[in-house]
Structures are given as structure tokens and as C-alpha cells.
Amino acid sequence: MTAAAPQGLLAKLDTQPRVRDFLMRAVTSDRASHAYLFVGAPGSGKLDAAWALAQALLCERDGEHGCGACDGCIRVARHTHPDVHYFAPESATGYLIAQVRDLLDDVALAPIRARHKVYIVDRAEQLRANTANALLKTLEEPPANVTFVLLGTSTDVMLPTIVSRCQCVPFRMLSARESAAAVVRATGLDEPRCRMAVAVAGSPVRAVEFLKSAERQEARRAMLRLIDSLPRADEADILLAVRDLMGTIKAPLADVKSTQQAILDQNADYLSRGALKQLEERNKRELSARERSGIMEALASARTLLRDVLMVVQGAPDETVNADASDIVERLSRTCTVSGAVAALDAVAHAERRIARNITPQLTIEVMLFDIRKALTCL
């Protein structure tokens, strides 16, 4: 019987048709590589494609590769499948050797639900010599049921030994117009709202997910309201507002925790104590990554708003992306200068770098908001 073409996440990668078609041919012919290296600029959809490939490989329907409707496909789409492991650097200098050891220990274990396991290694250019060497042999000869997907910006900044052991898949950079158009096609929503979602979420697929999440959209609105209030806020107001904001950002994690606990309960009877401990550690890492992603999304919301303020101050209102917050942009631009808007944007960029280095999120956002207040009010 001929395998059906994927209908899930992989089929939705219409902004990267060459990548989509290449991966479709690989999975439908059962010739998927044991290790891929997706390379491209931020926002090109590499992480979206990695999750899409994982869904295609873990689909539970016979003869299909990524139906999008079976339990396995749904879990992968929600990022809750126990056999898809996502890793990101946990240190300011890159991956920790302990992270790679945890990964290699897990590789040796059998899958929990599926017949296959997928490991997504984000920002793989931050695999330095000591961590990469531990991974090389497994990349070269992984177990038959394991696929690695490494994500990087360019092969030029990767260790050659890593590049040589992976099948490289290049991603082209998307224009803002292309990305927004893809979200319009996927959601049927108006173009301004889709353009905003892309600016906040970073890619078309994540923008679609963002527009489906009332909680993530509320976190954006909370950040916009907070920045709007800064010129009139004192220190106590800001500290209380940040506490509330952090609660809003963490709200979507409740469902993730519930799903993780259900999986632990289902597997408690037949997994060894060591395997259960590894699953618990993986769940903690996933929650941490989800929280960091939510924080970065909130910071992106602040960045896009302040960019709009800069555009208005410079006399280019047609370049704004937050059409639903035009009143906030107008209020802030009345008293802000070009240098003030630039300084405010610098404060957000500094906060994003601090979060990437695992500095305490609440403290980072507090410092950022104090700096933005100073910049906007020209104090």
C-alpha cells in the first residue's frame, strides 16, 4: 500500500516549500536520515519544521506519516509527546556537558509511547568542543529508532565534525509580508492581526499557535498595558505589575503540567526508577523551556510596541504592526523622542540577552521596565 502524504504540521510548511517537499519524500519513502541539520536565519521556521518532522515520524496511523489527528500527532503538536525531546543551551556560554550526558543517557532507553524517538537540539552552534565530542559517536551511529534534528544559523559557525555527521537542510529567510500572508491563509484572520502575530511569535506556524491561544494573547496585552502605564507609574506599581505579568505568562503551563503528570502516572508501573527520574527531569526542562519561550514572547510584544512608537516618532506610521494598540502607540509617541525610543528598544534587547543567559526573569523584566520608563519620559 502506498503511504499517504502527511496532512499534519509537515504539510503546513508552505513558506518553505522545498524543505516541506524534501522532508515529505524522506518520510513517505521511509528514508529519513538519522541526523538532520536545519540551517537558516531566525524566523525562517527551523523549529517549526523540526516539530513537523517529529510528528511525521511518530504518527500512529498505519500507512500514514503525520496524519495530524491521531493521539501521537496531537501530542507532538502540543509539544507533550514523551518521545520528542527538545534541548536548548542552559548556560550563557552554550550547552553544558551535563545536558549532553542526559541526552545520551536517554538515547539508550526505549521509547515510551511510540516506535521512534526524536531529539531536537536548538542553537546547535553553541555545542562547543567538549559537549560536541560527547555527542559525535551517537550522531554517527545512533540506535535505529532515533532521529536527531539540530538547528543552527549557519554551517560556518558550527563545528565541522557536527556538520559532517548530519544531512544539511537550508532554510530561506522569509519576508514579513510572506509570513503574514501564510498566517492569513491558515487562519482566515485579517492581515494586520496576522502581521502582529508573526512579529510577536517569530514564525508563521508559531503565529498560528499564538492566535489560537487566548492565554498567550492575554500575556501580550498585559505587557502592552504595563508599558502604557509606565509614564505614570512609580516603583511599587511596576513591581506589582511585573508580579502579575509573570503569573499571566505562566498560565499556559498549567495544562502542560497536567499532561506531564498524566504521562508519569500512566508509565509509573512499568518504567524503572531511573527511567522515571529521567522522565521527571525531562519534564522540568520542558517546563523551563516553555516558561522561557513565554517570557521571550512577552519581550517581543514590548519590542514590537516600542518599534511602533519609534516609527510614529520618525513619521512612518504605516510601518507599525500593532494596529489593535494604536491608541497606546499614539499616547507614548506624544512625549517620546527618537533617542528615547531607541533607548527603550535597547532595554528590551538587553533583557532578551539576559533571559537567554538564564538571568532571573522577574528581575530582568523589572530592570527593563525601569529603563523603558526612563527612556520614554526622558528623565
Rank of each mutant, 00 (worst) to 15 (best):
D327S: 13
L253W: 09
L332Q: 03
R292T: 12
K284H: 10
S272N: 06
H65T: 01
A4W: 00
R206L: 11
L136A: 13
E330W: 07
F171T: 05
R31L: 10
P170Y: 10
A199W: 01
T377K: 08
D371H: 11
Q7R: 15
N283M: 01
R18E: 15
A341V: 05
T360R: 12
A181L: 14
A325M: 09
S258R: 14
L376A: 06
C378V: 07
R354S: 12
C194V: 12
R354I: 00
A201R: 08
R206G: 00
V321S: 13
L376M: 10
S301R: 02
T377C: 13
V198N: 10
A56E: 03
A300P: 01
D371K: 12
R220C: 12
I355A: 05
H81T: 02
L332F: 00
D318I: 00
A349S: 14
Q126N: 14
T28E: 13
G8M: 03
V205S: 09
L96E: 13
N145P: 00
T364Y: 09
L57E: 02
A92W: 07
T320I: 09
L53D: 01
A344I: 07
G68F: 08
L151H: 07
A114H: 09
Q126A: 14
V84C: 06
C166G: 01
Q16A: 11
A347C: 10
V157T: 14
P6A: 08
V200H: 12
E319P: 00
E125L: 00
Q314P: 01
C194D: 12
A375D: 05
H350D: 13
M296K: 08
Q362D: 13
P170A: 07
V256N: 04
L211Q: 08
A233Y: 11
I365K: 00
T337K: 09
A207I: 08
S339I: 04
L37T: 12
G247C: 12
G247A: 14
A110V: 05
A50M: 04
Q16V: 12
A275I: 04
T28C: 04
C73K: 00
I365D: 02
N267F: 05
I74Y: 05
V149F: 11
G45D: 05
E297S: 06
L264V: 14
L271P: 07
L369V: 07
L57Q: 06
A69D: 13
F210I: 02
E178V: 07
N130V: 14
V39Y: 01
W51G: 02
A323M: 01
S203L: 03
M158P: 11
A241K: 07
M223Q: 08
M196N: 06
V146M: 04
L23C: 06
K46Q: 09
M368Y: 01
L299P: 04
D71A: 13
